[in-house]
Simulated scan of single mutants.
Amino acid sequence: MWPSPWRPPCPASGSGNSFKPIPLTVTRLAKLRTRAFFAQQCRCIYCHLPIWEGPYKDRLVSALGIPESLVPYLQSTAEHLVAQQDGGPDAPVNIATACQWCNWKRHAHRHNCAPDPVTFQAEVRRLMAAKRWHPAARWASRTLPGRAGQRSDRA
């Protein structure tokens, strides 16, 4: 059964020896988001910055020293790769996890016309390399050398 009620902490959160229970999720979409969160190794599908989900917020903040002002931007959100309004299902193949910032920017002021995920990811990665995308880009370039803007396995 996925996700297991007991999962190891995110690799970015420090020691892999401690286990922390994942709270039981209420909705199917929340379960799919949690599944994608771990499948993507706790990183946004677009900007590839570390993100947090539920009880892992404090671990991410303490392990990586994320400034408190950036924490809300790095919250995990469920991202429909094909929008529901375009017939995209709530299914594992259609759900990825994105940080709050990237999800908002992909859909902001774009009623019925969000860019496709592959094009959007390429644009975000280009802007991340120039440190012109995410509020956390400058922090990431100092703290996570060579990590921000890396390619992910999905999309």
Rank of each mutant, 00 (worst) to 15 (best):
D58H: 11
H80G: 10
W2T: 12
L127Q: 14
P9I: 13
I22D: 13
P115G: 11
A136Y: 01
A30H: 08
Q84G: 10
F19P: 03
V61D: 10
D116I: 06
T119W: 07
Q85G: 05
Y46N: 04
R106M: 09
L81H: 09
F19Y: 10
L49R: 12
V118P: 00
I51D: 02
R110S: 07
S4R: 12
T27Y: 05
W101S: 00
Q150V: 13
S69W: 03
R106S: 04
R33M: 08
V82E: 13
A96W: 05
G87E: 08
E123T: 11
W52T: 11
S152W: 02
R132L: 05
I45E: 07
R142D: 11
F37I: 06
Q75N: 07
F38V: 03
P50D: 10
P92C: 01
D86I: 04
L24D: 10
S69G: 08
C44E: 07
E123R: 14
P89H: 05
N17K: 08
Q41K: 15
G16C: 08
K105S: 08
L144M: 12
P21S: 14
A83N: 10
L49S: 00
S4H: 12
S141W: 14
F38K: 05
Y73K: 09
P67H: 07
M128K: 02
S13N: 15
V82P: 03
R125L: 00
W52Y: 01
F37W: 02
L32I: 02
C113N: 15
G54L: 13
G88A: 03
I45M: 11
S152Y: 01
S62Y: 04
C102W: 06
E123Y: 06
C102P: 01
L70K: 08
L49I: 08
R28N: 11
G14C: 07
R7V: 09
L60E: 12
A108N: 12
P115E: 04
L24R: 14
S62T: 14
F19G: 06
V118L: 13
K31W: 00
R35M: 11
N103K: 05
R154E: 10
L127G: 00
P21T: 12
F19I: 13
V71A: 09
A39E: 07
Q40I: 05
A91I: 03
A140I: 05
H107V: 01
L74F: 00
R43G: 01
P9R: 15
Q121L: 05
W104H: 14
T77Y: 08
P5F: 00
I22H: 06
A155Y: 15
A30Q: 15
R151D: 13
A130F: 03
C113K: 14
R154I: 14
N17D: 15
Y56S: 13
Q41I: 09
A98L: 08
Q84M: 02
A78S: 14
A91R: 10
D58N: 14
S152I: 09
